[in-house]
Design a protein around this nucleic acid. Structure first.
Lengths: 218, 218
DNA sequence: TTGCAACCTATCTAAAAGATATATCGTAAC
DNA sequence: GTTACGATATATCTTTTAGATAGGTTGCAA
């Protein structure tokens, strides 16, 4: 068997948090992981079936919740063990597919006009993305620094699916890890913005200035 | 037709540089693009056939080069036009699949021990990757700042396929763009290292220090 | 009572990744 | 000289992933 099947473990890991439906998983990934991981419905349902087939999860049709055909999946002890094993295995480098950087690279033979335009587009896109991440960051910092719970946090708890078990678990570490992960998104987006700011003048000038940027004095 | 088929344009864009074989394309991507884009043989050959079928490229069996069954693909005027069109179309956000960050995020319910280990692993991995990129950066800076050509640059020219046409084209802008693109890899890798350095102490302490990092004074 | 938006499970097709099959050439060991 | 091996090179196979969409239910508003 030649593949990695990482999405399988991503979904298994989410089920270790609590039993979920396919739709829950999709939403949770969109809210919390989308800037470093994604899953599509085309993966989720085949994977869920596979997990059940391998005995890593069980499937419960839950007619209680409104009569809708809601199907919840719950991880088994065997599944939990498989997840733990995966955590200990070596991991590959981050894989990236950056459309604008690709375009930028490919224009190098056709003069600098296209390159300048693409860089500017990249700057706009990344600043926008960064602003979005920073908004979430503020909400999370508030949540972490004070005991009472503002409205935004209630919303966040709901999005994360923490609105179910009021006092059994305080979610303190989850909240912290979520914040720390988000920080990585912020730092990387800032780096991409900084790249545009550094590189755009160079491309316009056609050459690298003698004095490099100040932070180069490491 | 529901898909993006970005690799198609990546390969088309490379063919706009000069006629190449599938193997050439693979090598070139590995040398120059691998930290923000990748293609596999499983994409290259189907795409090349498709390009020919659409009239965007022509296929030449080239028996001159040693009698080997070398097959070169050359872009057509129609293909060049299609590439230009694609350059002007809107681009999506960078798509990332970061295995270690995924693992880190998923461990938030099982205490901090796994998280600390994973972060340390991430730091090692990214520092290593950064060192590699910085080596290439030095070579490129040398190449850009002086007229004469050191041995490393000859090697680089060869890897990029610039060892063919000695004086017809000076490749100055390609070299510059290649350097600028590489800078983005360096800045992002530095951001990831910085993330680990910021986040690891917080996770160990279990809480965010009152005073955030100095650069927060934007 | 119709219409429609949000919710939810699920599948279909195309694109991409990774391993591997196949064949040629150069060269070094036997 | 011929056999073995590694590098070059084209290509395909299978699995995994992405994106669009199908199809059904529920709640609500016109």
């Amino acid at each position: 068997m030649p593949k990695k099947a990482l999405s399988q473990y991503a979904i298994l890991g989410l089920l270790c948090w609590k039993p979920m439906s396919g739709y829950d998983i999709k939403k949770l990934v969109e809210v919390g992981l989308s800037f470093f991981w994604n899953v599509s419905y085309g993966q989720i349902f085949p994977v869920l079936n596979k997990l059940v087939a391998e005995g890593w999860a069980t499937k419960h049709a839950d007619p209680a919740s409104g009569g809708r055909g809601r199907v919840a999946y719950e991880v088994t002890t065997k599944g939990r063990k498989a997840f733990k094993t995966w955590l200990g295995e070596p991991s590959g480098l981050p894989q990236l597919r950056d459309e604008l950087k690709l375009k930028f690279f490919l224009t190098s033979r056709s003069g600098t006009a296209d390159g300048v335009r693409l860089l500017e587009e990249y700057g706009v896109q990344q600043r926008e993305h960064l602003a979005m991440l920073k908004e979430s960051e503020v909400v999370l910092r508030v949540a972490l620094s004070q005991a009472e719970m503002p409205d935004e946090l209630l919303e966040l708890r709901q999005a994360l699916g923490w609105d179910d078990q009021p006092d059994t678990h305080d979610h303190a570490n989850e909240l912290l890890v979520f914040y720390l992960t988000l920080r990585s998104g912020v730092l990387v987006a800032e780096a991409r913005v900084a790249w545009v700011d550094e590189v755009l003048p160079i491309l316009k000038a056609g050459k690298i200035p003698r004095q490099k940027s100040s932070k180069e004095t490491k």
